[in-house]
Amino acid sequence: MKTVESAISAVLSGSITEITQRSIFNRLGPLASRPLAEISETERRTVMHELENSVRLFARSGAAELVAACSRVLNGETVGAGDRRDTGRSAVKTLDIQQEKDIATARLEAWSEAVRIGLSKFTSVKVATAVSELARNIVFYADRGKVELRAFTDAHGARLQIVASDKGPGIDSARLAEIFEGTYRSTRGMGKGLMAVKKLVDEFHLDTAPGRGTTVTCVFKGER
């Protein structure tokens, strides 16, 4: 039985932490555990009112979209696998990375995208962590760049491609060898960001040269 809580939780996961969600549902009281199909129009409005207040307070970005999505599920519109695939195919999210706070925004966006296309909870955390590493590299070494999230489906299921690109100084081949041998230590990080990403993802491609900038392309696969 789909309850108000389970329906809304599916929308909010990845954008709002579980603990915050808990507090939102606590405020809804017994309404949260009611079956979605049985709530009245008045009750629906009460839920929406609470959500509008809470989501605006807690969501880092895209609060309006989240509230709209909650409203749709409360009105009984289903988000089926087919819909997901269609929206997934057309969706390319571009995130500009310039300063430290963009790193946090990027990882939350990546997380919600991963959850949205149906990657597992564990894979979604890996996605967010990888994007965090890539965005951090951009801020640390290239000043600015962008992260693109591209959801698509192939014969084996949902995929999320992450492209992190910058026009920074690039990485020379000697440094690259150090990075992937694990002997490189940067002064600001652990020098392990790229190596970490390579280990987390299912496909990894690095395109870099001194003076040309760096582009990292990687793909996460959903489990079957």
């Binding site: 997380w111 962590t129 392990k192």
Partner: peptide
């Protein structure tokens, strides 16, 4: 317990 992402930098 409320931190959902820990990357290599935070680990450091």
């Amino acid at each position: 317990s409320a931190v959902e992402i820990i990357d290599s930098y935070i680990t450091r």
